[in-house]
Write a protein that binds this DNA or RNA. Structure first.
Length: 254
DNA sequence: AATTTATGCAACCGCTTCGAT
DNA sequence: GATCGAAGCGGTTGCATAAAT
């Protein structure tokens, strides 16, 4: 079923706002406050949909907006926040008083992206442009759900601990890549396995539930993997029989 | 001076999330 | 727990203006 239009008014105005519309919206919100955007246009005598009114107020008419150019400090803060939050513009805007998510998003796309590229930094990954993400090392198994504050440089820290790509591949796959079997788009669902005595790596839960569950699971890990890559043997070498589950591995040429 | 291209920003669209029932 | 409507969010578009040809 097609989605119903967002506006209750079939002939609502679109496009740029006029001064008169702005004044009506400001006047109404001064008297009654914002909120209940769906009914606001009619009450304020505007031929606009509620969404449009909300956007106009939040992004342009709000009295606490800071107009004008972004400062260098704001630039750096946006870059820093983006590196840990990604394209969560509303969260980033929440840390910059007087700036809106739309304004920051536009500023990012028009200025900061270019600024980072000119510094040799990929604006999406915040990594150096000459180091493609494909060469990165998988996250350690303990990092299953990074917090919003998890930063890319925590990953690069792991990478920098190894001397070479070959060593990383040796560690990760048990053999260095020969350049022909390096395609590996792997999705794994598993239960964390750790040695029972690695106490310092365990989260400190007040009721010890985690430790109880974990100790029960040691040696009984389940791994449901689907791996797209170049096969080197008939059965997945990583989990063919280590956990009681075998994966069906159909020959590629069948 | 006229035309084309690039840029910046306001506004829109459609999807997701959240809260009420 | 399911459903629905409203609000919020992020990606995208369209237009005005500036810069280049």
């Amino acid at each position: 079923m097609p989605r119903s239009p967002c506006c209750e008014q079939a002939h609502a105005n679109k496009g740029a706002w006029t001064k008169d519309e702005d004044q009506r919206l400001i006047h109404y919100i001064r008297l009654h406050g914002d909120g209940c955007w769906r009914s606001l246009p009619k009450a304020a005598g505007l031929l606009r949909c509620g969404k449009s009114c909300r956007l106009r107020w939040i992004n342009y008419l709000r009295p606490d907006l800071k107009r004008g150019n972004f400062t260098d400090e704001e630039d750096e803060l946006i870059i820093k926040l983006h590196s840990s939050l990604g394209n969560k513009w509303s969260l980033i805007a929440g840390r910059l008083p007087g700036r809106t998510d739309n304004e920051i998003k536009n500023y990012w796309n028009t200025h900061i992206k270019r600024k980072l590229i000119s510094r040799g930094i990929d604006p999406q990954t915040h990594r150096p442009l000459n180091k493609p993400a494909a060469n990165t090392v998988s996250k350690p198994s303990c990092i299953k759900n990074p917090s919003p504050d998890f930063k890319y440089n925590e990953l690069t820290q792991f990478k920098s601990n190894s001397d070479s790509l070959e060593q990383q591949q040796q560690q990760q796959y048990g053999h260095p890549s020969n350049g022909q079997d390096c395609l590996n788009l792997e999705l794994s669902i598993g239960i964390r396995v750790s040695s029972a005595n690695s106490a310092e790596s365990k989260p400190k839960l007040e009721n010890n539930n985690f430790q109880i569950v974990e100790q029960a699971m040691v040696g009984k890990a389940v791994c449901l993997c689907w791996e797209l890559g170049f096969r080197t043997s008939e059965i997945c070498s990583k989990c063919q029989n280590s956990n009681g589950f075998y994966r069906y591995s159909r020959p590629l040429d069948s």
